[in-house]
Design a protein around this nucleic acid. Sequence first.
DNA 1: CCTGGAACCTGGTAGC
DNA 2: TGCTACCAGGTTCCAG
Length: 270
Amino acid sequence: MPELPEVEVTRLRIADRLVGAHIEAVRCGLALRWPLGVEPPALVGRRVQAVRRRGKYLLIELEAGWLLVHLGMSGSLTWLTQPPPPGRHDHFDLVTDRGTLRLHDPRRFGAVVYAHALDAPVAQRLLGGLGVEPLDAAFDPARFHAALRRRRAAIKSVLLAGDVVVGVGNIYASEALFLAGIRPTTPAMRISRARAQRLHAAIRQVLQRALAAGGSTLRDFRADGQDGYFQLETWVYGRAGQPCRVCGTPIRVMRQGQRSTYYCPQCQAR
DNA sequence: CCTGGAACCTGGTAGC
DNA sequence: TGCTACCAGGTTCCAG
Protein backbone atom coordinates (compact mmCIF):
# COMPACT_ATOMS: atom_id res chain seq x y z
CA MET A 1 0.00 0.00 0.00
CA PRO A 2 0.40 3.22 0.93
CA GLU A 3 3.81 4.19 2.15
CA LEU A 4 4.55 7.66 3.49
CA PRO A 5 4.07 9.54 0.18
CA GLU A 6 0.70 7.93 -0.50
CA VAL A 7 -0.54 8.66 3.02
CA GLU A 8 0.70 12.24 2.84
CA VAL A 9 -0.90 12.81 -0.57
CA THR A 10 -4.14 11.46 0.84
CA ARG A 11 -3.86 13.80 3.83
CA LEU A 12 -3.28 16.82 1.65
CA ARG A 13 -6.28 16.02 -0.53
CA ILE A 14 -8.79 15.46 2.27
CA ALA A 15 -7.64 17.88 4.96
CA ASP A 16 -9.20 21.07 3.62
CA ARG A 17 -12.58 19.49 3.22
CA LEU A 18 -12.56 17.67 6.53
CA VAL A 19 -11.26 20.37 8.85
CA GLY A 20 -14.17 22.29 10.32
CA ALA A 21 -16.73 19.64 9.40
CA HIS A 22 -19.05 18.25 12.07
CA ILE A 23 -19.62 14.51 12.40
CA GLU A 24 -23.19 13.46 11.72
CA ALA A 25 -22.75 9.70 11.72
CA VAL A 26 -20.11 6.99 11.70
CA ARG A 27 -20.62 3.74 9.84
CA CYS A 28 -18.15 1.04 10.74
CA GLY A 29 -18.12 -2.48 9.36
CA LEU A 30 -16.80 -5.13 11.72
CA ALA A 31 -14.28 -6.16 9.13
CA LEU A 32 -11.11 -4.17 9.72
CA ARG A 33 -7.99 -5.20 11.58
CA TRP A 34 -9.02 -3.83 14.97
CA PRO A 35 -12.29 -2.66 16.53
CA LEU A 36 -13.03 1.07 16.41
CA GLY A 37 -12.94 1.31 20.18
CA VAL A 38 -15.84 3.72 20.62
CA GLU A 39 -19.59 3.62 20.09
CA PRO A 40 -20.23 5.58 16.87
CA PRO A 41 -23.05 7.70 18.38
CA ALA A 42 -20.54 9.09 20.88
CA LEU A 43 -18.71 10.84 18.02
CA VAL A 44 -21.76 12.60 16.56
CA GLY A 45 -21.59 16.38 16.78
CA ARG A 46 -17.82 16.58 17.20
CA ARG A 47 -15.88 18.93 14.96
CA VAL A 48 -12.77 17.90 13.01
CA GLN A 49 -9.91 20.12 14.13
CA ALA A 50 -7.03 18.91 11.98
CA VAL A 51 -5.73 16.04 9.87
CA ARG A 52 -2.15 15.08 10.73
CA ARG A 53 0.16 12.21 9.88
CA ARG A 54 2.60 10.05 11.84
CA GLY A 55 4.48 7.52 9.75
CA LYS A 56 1.82 5.73 7.72
CA TYR A 57 -0.99 6.70 10.10
CA LEU A 58 -3.42 9.51 9.42
CA LEU A 59 -4.44 11.22 12.65
CA ILE A 60 -7.82 12.88 12.49
CA GLU A 61 -7.97 15.27 15.42
CA LEU A 62 -11.48 15.82 16.75
CA GLU A 63 -12.77 18.41 19.14
CA ALA A 64 -12.20 15.71 21.69
CA GLY A 65 -10.29 12.59 20.77
CA TRP A 66 -8.55 11.23 17.70
CA LEU A 67 -9.26 8.80 14.90
CA LEU A 68 -6.13 6.87 13.88
CA VAL A 69 -6.47 5.66 10.32
CA HIS A 70 -4.13 3.14 8.68
CA LEU A 71 -4.52 2.13 5.05
CA GLY A 72 -2.87 -1.27 5.38
CA MET A 73 -1.87 -2.81 2.04
CA SER A 74 -4.85 -1.88 -0.09
CA GLY A 75 -6.71 0.94 1.62
CA SER A 76 -7.71 4.26 0.12
CA LEU A 77 -9.81 7.21 1.23
CA THR A 78 -12.28 9.12 -0.90
CA TRP A 79 -14.27 12.25 -0.18
CA LEU A 80 -17.85 11.94 -1.38
CA THR A 81 -20.46 14.66 -1.46
CA GLN A 82 -23.15 12.29 -2.75
CA PRO A 83 -22.07 8.92 -1.29
CA PRO A 84 -23.52 5.91 -3.08
CA PRO A 85 -24.45 2.91 -0.92
CA PRO A 86 -21.29 1.31 0.46
CA GLY A 87 -19.86 -1.50 -1.66
CA ARG A 88 -18.39 -4.81 -0.55
CA HIS A 89 -15.04 -3.32 0.43
CA ASP A 90 -16.20 0.02 1.83
CA HIS A 91 -15.60 -0.59 5.51
CA PHE A 92 -15.84 2.82 7.13
CA ASP A 93 -17.73 6.08 6.55
CA LEU A 94 -17.21 9.30 8.43
CA VAL A 95 -20.38 11.20 7.57
CA THR A 96 -20.13 14.95 8.14
CA ASP A 97 -22.25 18.01 7.39
CA ARG A 98 -19.96 18.71 4.40
CA GLY A 99 -19.56 15.25 2.91
CA THR A 100 -18.49 11.70 3.64
CA LEU A 101 -14.98 10.33 4.06
CA ARG A 102 -15.06 6.70 2.93
CA LEU A 103 -12.42 4.00 3.50
CA HIS A 104 -12.20 1.34 0.78
CA ASP A 105 -9.92 -1.59 1.62
CA PRO A 106 -10.25 -4.95 -0.15
CA ARG A 107 -7.64 -6.77 1.92
CA ARG A 108 -8.78 -5.35 5.26
CA PHE A 109 -5.31 -4.87 6.72
CA GLY A 110 -6.30 -1.28 7.37
CA ALA A 111 -7.79 0.11 10.55
CA VAL A 112 -9.62 3.00 12.14
CA VAL A 113 -9.08 3.27 15.88
CA TYR A 114 -10.43 5.86 18.30
CA ALA A 115 -8.23 7.22 21.08
CA HIS A 116 -9.19 9.95 23.53
CA ALA A 117 -5.59 11.20 23.49
CA LEU A 118 -2.40 10.39 21.59
CA ASP A 119 -0.66 9.34 24.78
CA ALA A 120 -3.49 6.96 25.70
CA PRO A 121 -2.44 3.29 25.72
CA VAL A 122 -4.59 2.44 22.71
CA ALA A 123 -2.73 5.06 20.64
CA GLN A 124 0.70 4.35 22.08
CA ARG A 125 0.35 0.68 21.21
CA LEU A 126 0.22 1.77 17.55
CA LEU A 127 2.44 4.87 17.52
CA GLY A 128 4.79 4.30 20.43
CA GLY A 129 7.44 2.28 18.65
CA LEU A 130 7.70 4.41 15.54
CA GLY A 131 11.00 5.87 14.40
CA VAL A 132 11.80 9.41 13.34
CA GLU A 133 9.91 11.21 10.56
CA PRO A 134 12.20 11.16 7.51
CA LEU A 135 11.19 14.61 6.26
CA ASP A 136 11.66 16.29 9.65
CA ALA A 137 14.83 18.04 10.70
CA ALA A 138 15.09 15.51 13.53
CA PHE A 139 16.12 12.93 10.91
CA ASP A 140 19.81 13.71 10.76
CA PRO A 141 22.63 11.65 9.25
CA ALA A 142 24.68 11.23 12.41
CA ARG A 143 21.84 9.84 14.49
CA PHE A 144 20.72 7.68 11.57
CA HIS A 145 24.18 6.17 11.31
CA ALA A 146 24.32 5.58 15.06
CA ALA A 147 20.96 3.77 14.95
CA LEU A 148 22.06 1.56 12.04
CA ARG A 149 25.20 0.52 13.90
CA ARG A 150 23.06 -1.17 16.54
CA ARG A 151 21.40 -3.49 14.01
CA ARG A 152 22.84 -6.65 12.56
CA ALA A 153 19.91 -7.32 10.18
CA ALA A 154 19.97 -6.50 6.46
CA ILE A 155 19.58 -2.79 5.79
CA LYS A 156 16.45 -3.38 3.71
CA SER A 157 14.76 -5.15 6.63
CA VAL A 158 15.79 -2.42 9.05
CA LEU A 159 14.28 0.26 6.82
CA LEU A 160 11.01 -1.68 6.55
CA ALA A 161 10.80 -2.29 10.30
CA GLY A 162 10.07 1.41 10.80
CA ASP A 163 11.55 1.72 14.27
CA VAL A 164 14.58 3.65 13.04
CA VAL A 165 12.86 5.79 10.42
CA VAL A 166 9.16 5.64 9.49
CA GLY A 167 7.33 5.72 6.21
CA VAL A 168 9.71 3.77 3.99
CA GLY A 169 7.89 0.71 2.65
CA ASN A 170 8.73 -1.93 0.09
CA ILE A 171 8.84 0.29 -2.99
CA TYR A 172 10.81 3.17 -1.52
CA ALA A 173 13.24 0.96 0.41
CA SER A 174 14.44 -0.60 -2.86
CA GLU A 175 14.52 2.81 -4.54
CA ALA A 176 16.45 4.54 -1.75
CA LEU A 177 19.04 1.75 -1.56
CA PHE A 178 19.57 2.02 -5.30
CA LEU A 179 20.07 5.78 -5.11
CA ALA A 180 22.57 5.28 -2.29
CA GLY A 181 24.39 2.46 -4.12
CA ILE A 182 23.93 0.03 -1.24
CA ARG A 183 23.24 -3.70 -1.58
CA PRO A 184 19.95 -4.46 0.26
CA THR A 185 21.47 -7.47 2.04
CA THR A 186 24.27 -5.45 3.67
CA PRO A 187 24.05 -5.71 7.46
CA ALA A 188 22.97 -2.29 8.75
CA MET A 189 25.82 -2.24 11.27
CA ARG A 190 28.38 -2.50 8.46
CA ILE A 191 27.31 0.67 6.68
CA SER A 192 29.93 3.38 7.00
CA ARG A 193 29.21 6.89 8.14
CA ALA A 194 29.62 8.21 4.60
CA ARG A 195 27.29 5.65 3.12
CA ALA A 196 24.71 6.19 5.87
CA GLN A 197 24.80 9.85 4.93
CA ARG A 198 24.11 8.96 1.30
CA LEU A 199 21.25 6.70 2.33
CA HIS A 200 19.81 9.44 4.51
CA ALA A 201 19.78 11.80 1.54
CA ALA A 202 18.42 9.10 -0.77
CA ILE A 203 15.48 8.36 1.54
CA ARG A 204 14.51 12.02 1.59
CA GLN A 205 14.97 12.38 -2.13
CA VAL A 206 12.86 9.39 -3.11
CA LEU A 207 10.05 10.23 -0.69
CA GLN A 208 9.90 13.84 -1.84
CA ARG A 209 10.00 12.82 -5.46
CA ALA A 210 7.17 10.31 -4.91
CA LEU A 211 5.18 12.94 -3.06
CA ALA A 212 5.49 15.27 -6.04
CA ALA A 213 4.31 12.46 -8.35
CA GLY A 214 1.21 11.84 -6.23
CA GLY A 215 2.53 8.55 -4.87
CA SER A 216 2.57 5.16 -6.59
CA THR A 217 -0.55 3.44 -7.92
CA LEU A 218 0.20 -0.26 -8.42
CA ARG A 219 -3.30 -1.65 -8.16
CA ASP A 220 -5.49 -0.41 -5.34
CA PHE A 221 -4.05 2.85 -4.21
CA ARG A 222 -5.76 6.10 -5.00
CA ALA A 223 -5.79 9.34 -3.02
CA ASP A 224 -9.32 10.70 -3.20
CA GLY A 225 -9.85 8.87 -6.48
CA GLN A 226 -6.69 10.11 -8.18
CA ASP A 227 -3.86 7.85 -9.34
CA GLY A 228 -0.22 8.44 -8.47
CA TYR A 229 2.50 8.19 -11.09
CA PHE A 230 5.75 7.41 -9.29
CA GLN A 231 5.57 3.75 -10.38
CA LEU A 232 6.38 4.96 -13.89
CA GLU A 233 9.73 6.38 -12.86
CA THR A 234 11.20 3.76 -10.53
CA TRP A 235 14.88 2.93 -10.88
CA VAL A 236 14.55 -0.69 -9.78
CA TYR A 237 11.18 -1.52 -8.17
CA GLY A 238 9.10 -3.76 -10.42
CA ARG A 239 11.83 -3.80 -13.10
CA ALA A 240 13.28 -7.34 -12.73
CA GLY A 241 15.11 -8.38 -15.89
CA GLN A 242 14.97 -4.91 -17.41
CA PRO A 243 18.19 -2.95 -17.95
CA CYS A 244 19.37 -0.66 -15.17
CA ARG A 245 18.64 2.92 -16.17
CA VAL A 246 22.21 3.85 -15.17
CA CYS A 247 24.46 0.99 -16.32
CA GLY A 248 22.27 -1.34 -18.39
CA THR A 249 22.85 -4.41 -16.20
CA PRO A 250 19.63 -6.45 -15.79
CA ILE A 251 17.80 -5.58 -12.56
CA ARG A 252 17.52 -8.49 -10.13
CA VAL A 253 14.75 -9.44 -7.73
CA MET A 254 15.25 -11.44 -4.54
CA ARG A 255 13.18 -12.35 -1.46
CA GLN A 256 13.95 -10.77 1.90
CA GLY A 257 11.57 -11.62 4.71
CA GLN A 258 8.74 -12.58 2.35
CA ARG A 259 9.05 -9.31 0.43
CA SER A 260 10.47 -8.73 -3.02
CA THR A 261 13.64 -6.65 -3.15
CA TYR A 262 14.83 -5.15 -6.42
CA TYR A 263 18.41 -4.02 -7.01
CA CYS A 264 21.10 -3.51 -9.61
CA PRO A 265 24.01 -5.91 -8.99
CA GLN A 266 26.42 -3.48 -10.66
CA CYS A 267 25.38 -0.13 -9.13
CA GLN A 268 24.79 -1.73 -5.71
CA ALA A 269 27.92 -3.84 -5.48
CA ARG A 270 28.08 -3.99 -1.67
C1' DC B 1 16.69 -7.09 23.02
C1' DC B 2 16.94 -8.69 18.15
C1' DT B 3 15.62 -11.61 14.22
C1' DG B 4 13.15 -14.24 10.88
C1' DG B 5 8.98 -16.55 9.76
C1' DA B 6 3.93 -17.18 9.95
C1' DA B 7 -0.34 -15.01 10.12
C1' DC B 8 -4.02 -11.79 8.94
C1' DC B 9 -7.39 -11.15 3.95
C1' DT B 10 -8.92 -10.64 -0.86
C1' DG B 11 -8.18 -10.45 -5.72
C1' DG B 12 -5.46 -10.59 -9.93
C1' DT B 13 -2.60 -13.18 -12.89
C1' DA B 14 0.52 -16.76 -14.68
C1' DG B 15 0.81 -21.46 -15.78
C1' DC B 16 -0.91 -25.97 -16.73
C1' DT C 1 -12.48 -22.39 -19.64
C1' DG C 2 -11.08 -23.99 -14.97
C1' DC C 3 -8.15 -25.02 -11.34
C1' DT C 4 -3.90 -24.09 -8.56
C1' DA C 5 -0.14 -21.50 -6.96
C1' DC C 6 1.81 -17.44 -6.13
C1' DC C 7 2.06 -12.57 -5.82
C1' DA C 8 0.68 -7.75 -3.97
C1' DG C 9 1.91 -0.98 -1.01
C1' DG C 10 1.89 -3.48 6.05
C1' DT C 11 1.99 -4.81 10.60
C1' DT C 12 1.70 -7.89 14.69
C1' DC C 13 2.74 -11.95 17.07
C1' DC C 14 5.57 -15.78 18.19
C1' DA C 15 9.52 -18.80 18.95
C1' DG C 16 14.38 -19.08 19.14
